[in-house]
Design a protein around this nucleic acid. Structure first.
Lengths: 197, 197
DNA sequence: CGCGACGTTGATTTGCCTCAACGATTGTGG
DNA sequence: CCACAATCGTTGAGGCAAATCAACGTCGCG
């Protein structure tokens, strides 16, 4: 469908985990809003409250933290079919500690906290959906913590290439480096050594 | 109550997030079992399927991964009022990749997957409870990932001391070191330098 | 065209690990 | 209850992993 605004994509994503009636789908979609973001534009700035959870219909974004010395540390990437937000800020209403920026011109679907709370109330199946979502996120984060405490930078890079082969081409190396917890200079050296064998 | 088996503690933990009728509480507790574990005993061994989520009534445990070179990497500690398991194994029924051992003689309350699924069905409020639990876990893990990619070992240790002051005394240094992603030798050097100022 | 962002490469420094030896404590068997 | 082994934390020496600083080529973009 040419004029699809991405809702179908989101709904089939949701229905991978729970089943919804068409009335529930209608109610759900009534709470959503679509937003297009140009490359390099910010979806969230540190200091603001994160008002939305965003589902990525198309494009690529990253969430990153800037430390006192001005260095950026990429916490998450989000591509098609992923969610992104500053959880702590969204749930608690506290100022965000991270920025979220679009690495490509992107399209996201957003839901705000009041709507999400209403959704939980009206359609409890969404409690289940987000439970499963967060559960999976926990598993993934756990693996990332393990690789951070147990592997060298080179090993983490190779593991990343293996797990998300398409991904390494899609985003600038410096962001991959900051995601892995190494410097762009060192990542370049790693790639150099890898290509020599 | 002298003969309390820890259920009251768990129930008030649950009721911090959701409200339950006494019938629901009864049903919930009918699904649980209590287990006492001696110090150094294992709650889970890598290779086995993780059959239970365990709520810690009393004591202290840790989940750790052993890599090919035989080194241990501590992924989680769990003390009173925390949960511990191998999520990936529990949800998917796959072999666990981690061991869980008691650092002190401990008492836990367990629920198996079939019972948890039944609980979700009978008392949907538990979907909400575990959603919130996993949500908070995501936030905490996110912060840990950030500290792993943005701080030095010494900074991570100081942050840990600040966040969980009581904790550093409770468990052996070598486990703290493996939690932080550094060696016990290096942690000792860090402590030495800290005490000199 | 010229500027700025990005990745690369080399030289140097720092963070952290490995190996090894040593007290102190814990625990275990005789 | 003592003797011995095992475990733990500490300390020192040396080595590797990764950061910093700096210079350079390439590319996309105004």
């Amino acid at each position: 469908m040419n004029e699809d605004n991405g809702y179908n994509q989101l709904i089939s994503h949701v229905q991978r985990h729970i089943t919804l009636t068409s009335a529930e789908i209608d109610y759900f979609t009534s709470l959503l809003r679509t937003r297009k973001i140009l490359r390099r534009q910010f979806l969230l700035q540190a200091g603001d409250v994160c008002k939305y959870e965003s589902y990525v219909v198309k494009g690529c974004l990253r969430a990153f933290y800037i430390d006192r010395s001005g260095q950026e540390h990429t916490l998450h990437f989000a591509v098609e079919d992923w969610w992104i937000s500053d959880f702590a800020s969204f749930f608690r209403g506290t100022p965000a500690t991270r920025d979220i920026e679009a690495l490509e011109t992107s399209e996201v679907i957003q839901i705000d906290k009041a709507s999400l709370d209403a959704l939980y109330k009206e359609v409890p199946a969404f409690e289940r959906f987000f439970r499963i979502l967060h559960q999976n996120a926990c598993v993934a984060q756990d693996e990332r913590i393990l690789s951070n405490i147990s592997m060298t930078g080179a090993e983490r890079y190779e593991a990343l290439l293996k797990k998300y082969p398409q991904f390494a081409q899609r985003v600038p190396q410096k962001h991959i480096a900051s995601f892995l917890g190494i410097t762009p200079v060192f990542l370049s050296q790693i790639r150099n050594k890898l290509s020599q064998q």
